[in-house]
């Protein structure tokens, strides 16, 4: 499809499909944030698909689902659909869609050479996944009937490799369908009207360092302006000055806890400043005192709505 059609208005004036990538250092709560925004958007009346990448579904047990696979399933009580895509499942769908002949398709995937190739060919998995994610916008392959695709993406390092794959391939293979598709995918990723990026972080040394690096590299290498979502922000019940009084005056009782809270407050302030200095737009999700998934998502959703 020619590139200019990517930007074409939707016939009938409907909402144009958009993509949101959610990334961050491992263990900061990306998936929870992705689910919270999926729920928020679904409640606002949008048709939302939450996509996991890889082989292992984080949400399957969390939402008590029997199965999560390539084809979207509705998540009960959440209002959005969920799917898990990996290089092979995306490639299979794509090949079946284009080769049409099921027999040829089997020859293709049962072939040892092809299997080995899919496992290791540089960029093929990444292109297959990104190709699927952007297929609705590019109007390529089976229809993807959603207003918003939210991608619970890899952690920052692998996310950069994923996002860099189309550019890498279009430089390596300039002509032919592979080059053309890579160019299309790359232009969708870089278009702020179509694609948004969120980086989830905790206000701690390593996650913030990784966030700042990822934020800058998205800007410099992809021209992408991302937003930063601060997760588990500890909202103090009293002022830092009052905390200090307790820390100093009650050594036996709450003193140690007050000192702990004071240290957390100081650390949070320091890292918020560093993020603000980098110019990153920020949203905060407070630390929520529950382990119950539904409650966590609901509270996070509320926080995202109000910040």
């Amino acid at each position: 499809m020619p590139q200019n059609q990517v930007q074409a208005p939707v016939p009938g004036g409907g909402i144009k499909q958009k993509i949101l990538f959610v990334s961050g250092k491992g263990g900061v709560g990306k998936s929870l944030v992705a689910a919270a925004v999926a729920r928020r958007e679904a409640e606002a009346g949008r048709r939302v698909l939450l996509v996991e990448i890889g082989d292992l579904s984080y949400f399957k047990d969390l939402f008590h689902l029997e199965r999560v696979g390539h084809s979207p399933v509705r998540v009960p009580g959440q209002g959005f659909d969920l799917a898990i895509w990996n290089g092979e499942s995306c490639l299979r769908e794509y090949v079946l869609h284009y080769l049409k002949l099921r027999r040829l398709y089997h020859v293709f995937f049962e072939n040892r050479v092809i299997r080995a190739l899919i496992n290791i060919a540089p960029g093929l998995n990444e292109i297959a996944i990104l190709g699927k994610i952007t297929s609705g916008i590019r109007k390529v392959g089976p229809p993807l009937d959603y207003d918003l695709i939210i991608v619970d993406c890899y952690a920052t390092g692998h996310a950069l490799a994923l996002l860099g794959a189309p550019r890498g391939l279009m430089e390596a293979v300039k002509i032919g369908p592979m080059g053309a598709q890579s160019r299309e995918i790359d232009s969708v990723l870089r278009d702020p009207d179509l694609t948004a990026f969120w980086i989830v972080t905790l206000l701690e040394e390593m996650p913030v360092a990784e966030t700042l690096e990822f934020y800058q590299r998205l800007q410099e290498e992809f021209g992408i302006q991302s937003e930063v979502i601060v997760n588990k922000y500890l909202q103090l019940p009293i002022s830092e000055r009052e905390l200090e009084t307790i820390a100093e005056g009650d050594a036996q009782g709450l003193g140690e806890f007050a000192r702990y809270l004071g240290a957390v407050a100081e650390r949070q302030g320091r890292f918020l400043k560093a993020l603000e200095k980098a110019g990153a737009p920020l949203r905060k999700i407070p630390l929520i005192f529950t382990t119950e998934t539904d409650c966590l998502i609901r509270e996070a959703e509320e926080a995202l709505r109000t910040t």
């Binding site: 284009y98 080769l99 293709f108 092809i114 293979v173 032919g176 592979m178 080059g179």
Partner: peptide, 15 residues
């Protein structure tokens, strides 16, 4: 060869 031909159709000769 058949499988690779299919791959060629999908990805292009250059790849």
């Amino acid at each position: 060869r058949m499988a690779l031909k299919s791959l060629e159709v999908l990805t292009g000769g250059a790849f």
